[in-house]
């Protein structure tokens, strides 16, 4: 059983995300990147599957600045190997990533691909269904639990309203992971540093070209102000009084 987990960096929203001078993309040089949190869960799910079923896990990411760090972290977390995929295109959107990864994954002979269900910058669709469709494999998104039974995966898919379903999928398949059964584990930095000093990252070159998107971003900007909240100012005690007054005014709590 060979599992590939696809990882991707996204802008860290704790830091400011600036728009570039063209006004159509983020200023990629000023952005602080971090692992997409859904990919983080996909990675945890992959390592859990490795621990429970002995599957071999490969972490895969498109080559980019900072991506090595992310792959080393995956090795420190417990994946067996990490591969950076180089492409001719600089694009990292889901259709481009899927085009680059499909061939590489097929060559690797993987049985199951896990990746985050979405990312905050997935303007052109989500990776899992695009990749699966390119590979001709079944896929399931919004997955919160995966177990392996022979050549099948049993997954829990979540819907709005708290409904869930258990699906059975023949392998090979692609799953878009929303949450692992447990929060992503902590990796001590000493282990990370050890891995960075000793582990070797593999690499693969993507053969396929990135497909045209058929869609152009004409503007990227902060959402229009307007309605917005009326801000309550002051020390916490004063703000608390204002809030309680509001609630009482509207009969939302007992007067």
């Amino acid at each position: 059983m060979h599992i590939a987990v696809i990882l991707k960096q996204v802008p860290d929203l704790v830091e400011e995300v600036e728009v570039d001078s063209q006004g159509t993309d983020i200023d990629r040089d000023s952005v602080k990147w971090k692992l997409n949190e859904f990919d983080d869960h996909a990675l945890e799910q992959a390592v859990l599957l490795k621990e429970s079923s002995g599957a071999e896990v490969t972490a895969v990411a498109l080559a980019a600045d900072g991506v090595d760090q992310l792959l080393y972290a995956a090795v420190a977390r417990g994946v067996d190997r990490a591969i950076r995929v180089t492409t001719a295109s600089a694009r990292t959107d889901a259709p481009a990533a899927a085009a680059a990864l499909a061939g590489v994954l097929a060559d690797m002979g993987v049985d199951l691909v896990l990746t985050g269900v979405q990312a905050v910058d997935d303007l052109h669709g989500q990776l899992a269904p695009i990749l699966a469709t390119r590979l001709g494999w079944p896929h399931v998104s919004v997955v919160s639990r995966v177990s392996l039974e022979g050549t099948e995966a049993e997954v829990t898919q979540e819907y709005s309203g708290g409904r869930m379903a258990t699906l059975e999928v023949d392998l090979p398949a692609v799953l878009g992971v929303q949450a692992a059964p447990r929060p992503p584990r902590y990796v001590p930095i000493s282990r990370l540093r050890q891995v960075m000093a000793s582990a070797e990252l593999g690499s693969a070159a993507a053969a396929a070209a990135a497909p045209a998107l058929g869609s152009t971003v004409t503007r990227l900007a902060a959402p229009p102000q307007g309605q917005g909240a009326q801000m309550l100012e002051g020390r916490p005690e004063a703000v608390a009084e204002q809030i309680v007054a509001l609630l009482r005014e509207r009969g939302l709590v007992e007067a």
């Binding site: 001590p188 930095i189 000493s190 282990r191 990370l192 540093r193």
Partner: peptide, 8 residues
């Protein structure tokens, strides 16, 4: 207990 983090 996070010596590695400290060192880094």
């Amino acid at each position: 207990g996070e010596r590695g983090l400290f060192e880094m």
